[in-house]
């Protein structure tokens, strides 16, 4: 009954986040907040919401980074929520067992009624995916929308996490990584999905897709520079050639 599942979960549900298309719009973060405010971890308390230092519980936060230096510097938008690690330290440090990883699908959850609010799991998580609700005195976190993905009251198509359903840029994908043929497994394989901070040995389930290489220099080779068209025909002589070559009359 303690620690991580003895056998690997039957399914490994998680997200693929595409850093190549994420425009940093925060849609996923706010829809997550909205869904979960009334969901499994209700409420997602906001302290001082109209005051000087508003501080709310969010399961998904969107960073933006500058990468590189000089004229090639790029901006990468970077959403981050719980990665539902296979080797989740947040689970093993938890003294009460409130924090656990589900055997069925690998989702890492907190059971609030058992949580003493010692915060140790948040110290153990390298990714900052644990959210302490100072008002309720308990730890909360991304549930992978467990109350959506299995929800009989939702239509089949809607049984995906809120953040995935809402992302206007389709930068988020949900599926089962245990199945090599799932959309997420294939995406991760094709696009070089990677782990955050592998040195922490958490074995995150969620994968990030790297920004694609930029199509800047390469095209110069493919497309030769434009050549002067006038020499033979004089000023705009090429126009007549163009016109005679189109069978418009």
């Amino acid at each position: 009954m303690t620690g991580l599942p003895a056998t690997p979960p039957q399914r490994k549900l998680g997200l693929v986040i595409d850093l190549d298309t994420c425009v940093g719009c925060h849609a996923c973060a706010v829809n997550c907040k909205e869904w979960n405010a009334g969901g499994y971890h209700a409420p997602l308390t906001d302290i001082d919401p109209y005051g000087v230092e508003p501080d709310g519980v969010w399961f998904n936060r969107i960073h933006s980074f500058e990468v590189g230096t000089g004229p090639d510097t790029r901006v990468v938008n970077f959403p981050k929520s719980c990665l539902h690690c296979d080797n989740a330290p947040c689970v093993t440090v938890c003294p009460t067992g409130a924090s656990y990883k589900r055997v069925e699908d690998g989702i890492v959850l907190v059971e609030e009624d058992k949580c003493i609010g010692c915060k140790l799991c948040s110290w153990a998580c390298p990714y900052g995916a644990r959210e302490f609700d100072g008002d309720a005195g308990v730890m909360k976190k991304c549930t992978l929308c467990i109350d959506r993905i299995y929800n009989d009251n939702l239509e089949e198509v809607d049984r995906v996490p809120a953040c995935v359903a809402t992302c206007p840029a389709s930068a988020r994908h949900f599926g089962d990584f245990a199945d090599p043929n799932s959309n997420v497994s294939k995406l991760a394989a094709e696009r070089g999905g990677f782990d955050l901070m592998p040195e922490m040995d958490c074995q995150p389930v969620n994968k990030y897709l790297p920004p694609r290489p930029k199509k800047t220099g390469g095209d110069t080779d493919r497309v030769p520079e434009l050549q002067d068209a006038s020499p033979e025909g004089g000023f705009l002589g090429w126009v007549d050639r163009l016109l005679s070559s189109t069978e418009h009359v």
Partner: peptide, 14 residues
């Protein structure tokens, strides 16, 4: 390593 973006250069928060 935290962002996995090291191959593109140094990473600074914007």
């Amino acid at each position: 390593s935290a962002t996995g973006l090291g191959s593109l250069g140094t990473v600074r928060p914007l």
